[in-house]
Design a protein around this nucleic acid. Structure first.
Lengths: 211, 211
DNA sequence: CAATGTGAACGTGTTCACAGCA
DNA sequence: TGCTGTGAACACGTTCACATTG
């Protein structure tokens, strides 16, 4: 552990979770060993790419046999930091924010939303799921005391940058942004945008000719 | 129109909606002209990249001055096919599906969800928003008669591929997939995945060292 | 002897730098 | 003069091909 990992391309990091998911599925199906060829068929990518991606982190396979699914899963989970629990807070408990809190897909993967915030007087004090909605002024305290490392942004576009600034000030290092903006964050803070409208708008480029 | 567009890189197409969004904002702020430099500052990208991207589609700027915001917006909307209305149907009216139907961000951008489907007997016939939930058997009829070109998938992972197959059979050409799977589709069908768990799992790679 | 791991070749996307033009 | 548009140079990611090994 703590091995120097010189310059892993970001695209590679983006693909690792795909491997984790596919391997988890294969494991549930009762398989023990998988080749880069087989894994590549599942994921519609070339075996060479899978082997190259993995080679940035170590040598996990056995020549002539392939990869032990259980072992490779352990290693990838370790590499991605998926072994422990990650605590997140959510800002903005409107329709979208409520849907995110009630979304059941996060917890099984080790991501727990432990606090909800809103800047509106009306929302503060109400409950969403089993979370009490807190005022934004509690943010720094909660982030530090409870140990929250991820902020989920579900506020309107106009407020998004301000909210993100406050999350960063509070010490948040990762932001999952649902607002339709391209946020600015200082170096060292990681942002992931969830933006279905952008997805649709690039999709239509390929659809428009055959409408 | 119908100009040969030789090999526009997909990354470029993915960025065009960003330009549309930024330009729309600048227009609302009352600006008339913008340089690639200024636009690049907004979007945190190099002026050269913006100019190069636009050059795949034509010459929209005026040397020494920059780009007319209104004109460039019109052109980009035309290129992306954002001038008309796009009709979508949604499959899966569970919690996630209901949240998507109630999401107010699609309509202002010209994307309308005109029908909802579910394979569960219990759901069929109920109403979500102002849509009646239909059985999957109605899918081909609705897609053809109503002219639906986009399918939104909000079913559990286990059902996703089956649902996507049926959407494709019905003539759907674009799929916005919220299920945590990497779906297979035939050539000519465009897929965009919305997968916050994958986003979080790649984020933690960068966060884990400073937890 | 089947399948990994990896330098080298290749291809694609980004940035540079400047000619051309309003 | 200021900024676009674009070939050329560069950097980066993917694929190839094969030596290596259990």
């Amino acid at each position: 552990m703590n091995v120097m990992q010189p310059e892993v391309p970001e695209v590679v990091v983006l693909r690792l979770p795909l491997y984790v998911r596919a391997l988890t599925q294969l494991e549930r199906e009762g398989m023990n060993v998988v080749s880069s060829q087989q894994l590549g068929e599942r994921l519609q990518m070339t075996p060479a790419q899978i082997r190259k991606d993995l080679s940035y982190f170590g040598r996990f396979g056995k020549q002539g046999r392939g990869y032990s699914i259980q072992f490779l899963l352990e290693e990838l989970r370790e590499i991605l930091g998926l072994t422990g629990e990650w605590r997140a807070c959510l800002v903005g408990v409107g329709r979208l924010g409520r849907a995110i809190i009630n979304y059941t897909g996060f917890a099984p993967e080790g991501f727990t939303i432990v606090a909800a915030f809103d800047s509106s007087e009306n929302q503060v004090g109400t409950a969403v799921g089993d979370l009490a909605v807190r005022p934004m002024s509690h943010l720094p305290y909660v982030v530090n005391e409870v140990g929250v490392s991820i902020g989920i942004v579900a506020v309107p576009a106009a407020q998004a940058q301000t909210v993100i600034d406050r999350l960063v000030e509070s010490g948040i290092k990762g932001i999952l942004n649902y607002a339709p903006v391209a946020p600015y964050v200082p170096r060292g803070v990681v942002v992931r945008n969830i933006d279905p409208v952008l997805s649709l708008q690039s999709m239509t480029f390929y659809l428009k000719n055959e409408r």
